[in-house]
């Protein structure tokens, strides 16, 4: 069973309140379509795999703010060490959401290595298990939208660092996110919103 990425993000938008939300890749594309908030940081253009680090930096600088990072599985695979960086830093105000669709969606839905790798039991790589092994004490998995809707606020309000892996369906024909404007200006506006 899988969730819809769009529905999953809509649920997030209903519970984020005044949290900072950092999005990357496909999550950015759909998050921007849902709406905008001064504390959104749509990481477009991004350095693939670096959204968790960016979110960690914000969380450490502003421990009074909840920070939610929406990452993809391809981006996660590109920087698996970030799991350990996040748990080592132990930022209680940080939540990492991984939208796992098994493919590089924005480049045409090619399989990720994790989708082709098979363990002894024939399963693909289990990102939640990797996160658990990397030290996340607060860890969730969702493959059902009703359960995500029911627990989303709990996931976000939980003292972190928290990781939740949401199994989502790829969106056929989806493309990469378009930058919503000049990156330096958006960075300055975001920093100003954080100061307010």
């Amino acid at each position: 069973m899988t969730l819809s990425l769009v529905e999953s993000l809509q649920v997030l938008s209903e519970v984020r309140d005044d949290a900072v939300v950092v999005t990357a890749m496909g999550a950015s594309r759909e998050w921007m379509a849902i709406g905008s908030h001064p504390l959104d940081f749509n990481f477009v253009p991004s350095s693939m795999g670096q959204a968790p680090g960016l979110g960690l930096g914000i969380a450490l600088a502003r421990p009074d703010r909840k920070v939610i990072v929406c990452n993809g599985d391809g981006s996660t695979l590109m920087n698996l060490g970030a799991f350990v960086t996040l748990t080592a830093a132990a930022a209680e105000n940080l939540t990492l959401l991984i939208f796992d669709n098994g493919v590089y969606e924005v480049t045409g839905a090619q399989l990720t290595p994790a989708s082709t790798a098979s363990g002894p039991d024939g399963r693909c790589v289990d990102l939640a298990a990797v996160a658990r092994a990397a030290g996340f004490q607060s860890l969730y998995e969702f493959d059902d939208i009703d359960k995500w809707r029911e627990q989303a606020r709990t996931v976000i309000d939980q003292p972190g660092p928290t990781c939740a892996v949401l199994k989502v369906a790829p969106i056929p024909g989806a493309v990469g996110p378009k930058s919503p404007g000049p990156a330096p200006e958006r960075a300055r506006a975001f920093a100003a919103a954080l100061r307010d």
């Binding site: 968790p52 960690l56 914000i58 600088a61 920093a191 954080l194």
Partner: peptide, 19 residues
């Protein structure tokens, strides 16, 4: 402490944005 040097720039970027 980060795991790989590329992360240093992203974490520093977030810190800078956060003031």
């Amino acid at each position: 402490r980060v795991c790989r040097e590329g992360e240093t720039w992203a974490v520093a970027a977030g810190l800078h944005l956060g003031g």
